[in-house]
Nucleic acid binder design. Structure first.
Length: 208
DNA sequence: CTACCGATTGACT
DNA sequence: GTCAATCGGTAGA
């Protein structure tokens, strides 16, 4: 692996929906005291700014969501229901956008992640935004962390040659903007949270 | 200060 | 499938 495999800032400096789609298949990496852990990103969601009522940044800047207003390529870590969730900040046009990493497929340092998660079913190891953060020991210390420098916490280029089949759906846990299909996931992958088979991007509109 | 609630999870029917 | 624990962030008195 060379350092050029780390996703550069410019990767994130694009339309947030496109970034969310392109992050599927990429490799999330965490450097722990005992070694490297991580895996393949299999589920993401895009959150936009002032025009997206489901976004944390919809009602303006607060101490909590400040990282979303910062430069692209940084992390935005927030807490909900006493748990942590990881976003990658995207775009660079003054609009506070982020991509929620909802699930990864565990591939590297599985034993390390199992230790951090405790006694759970293997399938639940990293299935869900707060579960993967627990498995990788990601907390508020990584809020605004640069993801493009290849240390502690970063995202690398995909290992596989071909892109997996990507399905889309409305975002999970949000009641607003159901017409925006901004959730992306590897179709049928067992580590995807929520519906794992919805419809391919080539199909027609989703069932209501 | 108090009150409300969520981009969730895990236990349970 | 249903439901409640849990606690920091936020708004409002």
């Amino acid at each position: 692996m060379s350092s050029s495999d780390i996703l550069p800032t410019d990767f994130y400096r694009r339309d947030v929906v496109q970034v969310a789609r392109d992050l599927i298949g990429k490799q999330l990496r965490r450097e722990l005291p005992a070694g490297i852990a991580g895996g393949r990103i299999v589920e993401t969601e895009a959150y936009r700014g002032a025009d997206d009522p489901a976004s944390h940044s919809y009602r303006g800047k607060t101490p909590r969501n400040e990282a979303m207003f910062g430069p692209p390529g940084r992390a935005y870590v927030y807490t909900i229901h006493a748990r942590f969730c990881l976003n990658a900040v995207a775009q660079d046009d003054g609009s506070p956008c982020g991509v929620l990493i909802r699930a990864i497929e565990p591939q590297v340092g599985v034993d390390l992640m199992e230790q951090l998660r405790g006694d759970v079913k293997h399938n639940d190891l990293t299935r869900g935004p707060a579960r993967l953060c627990e498995a990788l020991d990601i907390d508020r210390q990584f809020d605004a962390w640069p993801l493009d420098e290849g240390r502690e916490l970063w995202i690398e280029e995909a290992v596989e040659q071909s892109k997996p089949t990507i399905a889309v759906s409305p975002r999970i846990g949000v009641s607003q903007a159901q017409d925006r299909l901004w959730r992306f996931f590897v179709n049928g992958n067992r580590y995807v949270s929520g519906p794992r088979k919805y419809h391919s991007e080539d199909d027609g509109p989703p069932p209501r």
